[in-house]
């Protein structure tokens, strides 16, 4: 396999079936360091599955995931892919942060403990170090005053910001956002959007799956339109929102969203 060092992440021919359904069908994608990629598309088009495959939460049936120039996460035996050893996968995941639609904060831990958990348990940092990192991350998402409370007392927007703090506390090289604002009330979308934007300003490489066109317009270096398991069109936001209109299916989709 000829690996290319210029990209942080390269996907080649990623394919994932669910029984008879092909969720992701031979996707190729290169992501440069510092790039902000937004993936849009109708539901069921395979966006989330692709994102989860990058974090090895979905085991792909075929293809190559090349992370930092090295083929990552799978061993090929008799032409079939097998997920690598759990320790290898865990190490890879600790370099790739992920934020979920439904936050998935740990409800039995305080906000501070949620953010400390990764550095403490996974990176085996000392309590003092983990505390220092967690406080810095909470300051970054503007929730330092909520450090002592349990997630049950937070609003949806606050929960998602804590989830972002928990992910970036691992100092990941790549952040994946799986519809980060879809479960939020409209008035709470803004604060999460602002938090993600501040990460973008810091130069974080990110892939965002969203229905929120604000991400595409204001953050994206590149917008990908996905349908039926593969990319149908891509371009800069300007190209996309102008030229995308020439494509019947993208136009239909955008008209429905906007």
């Amino acid at each position: 396999m000829n690996t290319d060092n210029q990209y942080l992440l390269s996907l080649k021919g990623i394919t994932k079936h669910f029984k008879s359904l092909t969720a992701v069908n031979g996707v190729n994608l290169d992501v440069s360091s510092g790039e902000k990629l937004v993936i849009i598309g109708p539901s069921g088009s395979g966006k989330s599955t692709l994102l989860r495959a990058i974090n090895f939460l979905e085991v792909i049936d075929d293809g190559h995931i090349i992370f930092e120039g090295k083929e990552a996460g799978y061993i090929r035996k008799n032409g079939r892919l097998h997920l690598d050893k759990p320790q290898v996968i865990s190490a890879l995941r600790s370099e790739i942060g992920m934020v979920f639609q439904h936050f998935h904060l740990f409800p039995h831990m305080t906000v501070l403990e949620n953010v400390m958990e990764g550095p403490l348990t996974v990176q085996k940092k000392s309590r003092e170090e983990a505390l220092e990192i967690a406080l810095a991350m909470l300051a970054k998402v503007g929730l330092i005053d909520k450090k002592g409370v349990y997630p049950a007392t937070l609003s949806g927007g606050q929960k998602q910001r804590v989830a972002i703090a928990r992910a970036i506390a691992m100092k990941p090289k790549l952040m994946l956002f799986d519809e980060p604002t879809s479960a939020l009330d409209p008035e709470l979308v803004g604060e999460v959007f602002e938090t993600i934007r501040s990460l973008a300003v810091d130069g974080m490489t990110m892939i965002i799956v969203t229905h929120h066109m604000g991400f595409a317009r204001e953050l994206a270096d590149r917008v990908m339109f996905m349908e039926s398991g593969n990319f149908l069109a891509e371009g800069t936001p300007q190209e996309f929102f102008a030229e995308g209109m020439n494509n019947e299916r993208i136009r239909t989709f955008l008209n429905r969203i906007l």
Binding site: N55, L57, P86, S90, S94, F100, G118
Partner: peptide
């Protein structure tokens, strides 16, 4: 327990054992 809890634990790099024990 919501399956998302295991996924979130794995997503920050925990092994199955760590996720079980801690989360």
């Amino acid at each position: 327990i919501d399956h998302g809890q295991m996924e979130a634990a794995k997503a920050i790099g925990m092994t199955y054992r760590q996720a079980m024990r801690r989360v």
